[in-house]
Design a protein around this nucleic acid. Structure first.
Lengths: 246, 246
DNA sequence: CGATCGGTTGAGAGAGATCAACGCAGGTGG
DNA sequence: CCACCTGCGTTGATCTCTCTCAACCGATCG
């Protein structure tokens, strides 16, 4: 149950600031980020507050209960959002993907820690400056709030999964919901990339690593998926749906 | 696993509208509701949109996936917020208490159903009118957003509980968090009222009714709590804390 | 080549589910 | 006033799904 995260702690931020290189106007994730509601002039205003930040795989972007000095837009890569129990048991609250915003709640401290699953590109804003901007731009606040509402329904989906689904249903559900999230951000493919390891999935689904592995091979043997390096190929969506109990 | 909710379906809304009887200005829950950020003139504006609504115990305020025609402030009583799996398995996402706001996400449809655990008093607003008001009052939106952020951290607490805690820890945690919520709304007492039944707790904690019952009697035998009709008396908070693994 | 890391597989154990009986309070109707 | 029923909670016996412990496999790397 106790986990060794194997996390790199120092230097915590392996970051290169780049004010240059194509601004917000041609940001890859703008259409799917909170920024999509901003006008071009507003975007320039925002840009003056922004810093690009690159993080290497395995490093922490921020830690649980740490003062929230910045808020972040994920541009490229994937993050794991976790909470720890004092005895080391871990729950992965979710995974952040391109277009996701970290710091939605605008609270003083982060309620989770965030670690890079891949090499990561983000766009960050000093939190106080950002909240100032938000005060002045109600439609940006509305955009954040809409996202918060969406996050809340995702959290509810996850609670239903954790509380009432079997191991097989959990794994099938997880694959489908990840596919769904990729689809929302444009990417749609038969092969589903899994940037997280088995332990991360287990801690997300309330299972052990062994059970996740067994269920994946079971899905494979049922020809619902095909296990491939770095992910799974979704062979039979209908079967997956029925196995997920949706 | 399948549950008969025993829910009264028709008449769904047993409601008495009362525009009279002391307005928002002397509303019991104003200081702890979203309305607390409004000025007196704004409050009058809000009041013109509000309707009091009374619901009898056991009746549904709204159903999952139902178009969200109204948003609600809970004034008195308690609600159970649930989601169902197609096969009838149920997850209780939470319990709404006085001061809570239902419809935070301002989305077209409710993501949960809400049923009265006790006789209930609410103050409701036609959703479209309310969102209109929110557009015009950024500080109200900010208040809603802050609440959404708080709800999100509660949801994370619950995910950690569901995914990584043992049955005993779940029950101990639940009692403490309920106490915490009562305390936030002013009420603080050694005897914790439990307006929900054992099945509701079970469906909230991802357990069965029998396990909840067993864990409660175990806590009783350990002299951490005393089971009393309609609730529990908290005898040893320190012991409860340690049993809850916080 | 040995070592490490991530993942898979097997055997056995245990926490919680399932099935079943029972107790008690409240309501109903004779 | 008592017999009966129903709803809710408790307790016991047994079962099973998932965890635990352990071995193993292949890839990567110094």
């Amino acid at each position: 149950m106790l986990v060794d995260t194997g996390l790199q702690e120092s230097p915590r931020h392996v970051c290169h600031h780049r004010q240059s290189e194509g601004g917000c106007a041609d940001c890859k994730v703008r259409p799917i980020s909170v920024c999509s509601v901003l006008t071009l002039p507003e975007l320039e205003e925002l840009e003056s507050l922004s810093q690009h930040l690159v993080l290497e795989k395995g490093h922490a972007l921020f830690g649980q209960d740490e003062p929230a000095g910045y808020v972040y837009n994920v541009i490229e890569g994937a993050l794991r959002l976790t909470r720890l129990l004092p005895d080391g048991r871990r729950q992965v609250m979710g995974f952040a993907l391109p277009g996701d915003f970290l710091g939605l709640a605008l609270q003083d401290r982060f309620s989770v820690s965030a670690e890079a699953l891949t090499s990561l590109k983000t766009c960050r804003f000093e939190r106080r400056a950002f909240t100032g901007l938000v005060q002045a731009k109600p439609h940006l606040l509305r955009s954040l709030h809409d996202r918060a509402g969406y996050e809340l329904t995702l959290a509810q989906d996850q609670m239903l999964l954790l509380g009432r689904r079997t191991a097989e249903e959990k794994v099938a559900s997880f694959l489908l919901s990840l596919r769904e999230r990729y689809a929302r951000t444009g990417r749609t493919s038969v092969t589903l990339e899994l940037p997280m390891g088995r332990q991360d999935m287990a801690d997300h689904l309330g299972l052990t690593i062994e059970t996740v592995s067994r269920m994946l091979t079971r899905l494979d043997r049922q020809h619902a998926v095909l296990l491939v390096p770095g992910g799974v190929r979704l062979l039979d969506l209908a079967k997956l749906e029925s196995l997920s109990a949706n």
